[in-house]
Amino acid sequence: MALDNDDDTDFVKFWNTVLEPKFTQYRHILQGGLSRHSAAVIPKLPIAEGMAVLDVGCGWGDMSLQVAEMVGPTGRVVGIDCVDAFLEEGRKDAAAAGLSNVTFSRGDAEVALPENQFDYVVARFGTMFFTNPVAALRRMRLALKPGGQMTHIVWRRREDNPAWQEAKNIALRHLPAPGADADTCGPGPFSMGNEETAGIMMKSAGYVDVSFTRVDEKILVGRTPEESIAFALAIGPGGEVFREAGEELAEAKRPEIEREMRDYFESLETDIDGIWAPTSSWVISGRNPA
Rank of each mutant, 00 (worst) to 15 (best):
A40H: 11
A96M: 14
P73Y: 10
L144Y: 00
R106M: 09
C58F: 01
R138A: 13
E166K: 15
T74H: 12
E69F: 08
G59F: 01
S35E: 11
L54N: 02
A97R: 15
C58E: 02
A109F: 03
G126A: 15
I42L: 13
F125W: 10
R106Y: 10
N132E: 12
G57E: 03
A48Y: 11
F125P: 04
N161T: 10
V122D: 00
K44F: 13
L54W: 01
D93G: 02
E110A: 12
E69M: 12
L113D: 04
L99D: 04
L144A: 04
L87S: 08
T74D: 14
V71R: 00
F104Y: 14
R124H: 09
A97N: 09
R91C: 11
G147C: 07
A97Q: 15
T103Q: 15
M150S: 08
Q117F: 04
I47K: 00
D81K: 02
G126T: 07
T74M: 12
R124M: 04
D84M: 06
P43Q: 09
N101C: 10
S100R: 10
T74F: 11
V134G: 09
A95C: 09
G148F: 10
R76P: 01
G50Q: 06
G98R: 06
T103K: 14
V56G: 04
R157W: 08
P73D: 15
G50P: 05
V78I: 14
S35H: 12
N161F: 08
R138T: 15
E88D: 15
N169L: 06
L54I: 04
T103N: 13
M51A: 10
K145H: 02
K168V: 07
S105K: 14
P133L: 05
E88M: 11
L87T: 06
V78H: 03
Y120V: 03
V77Y: 01
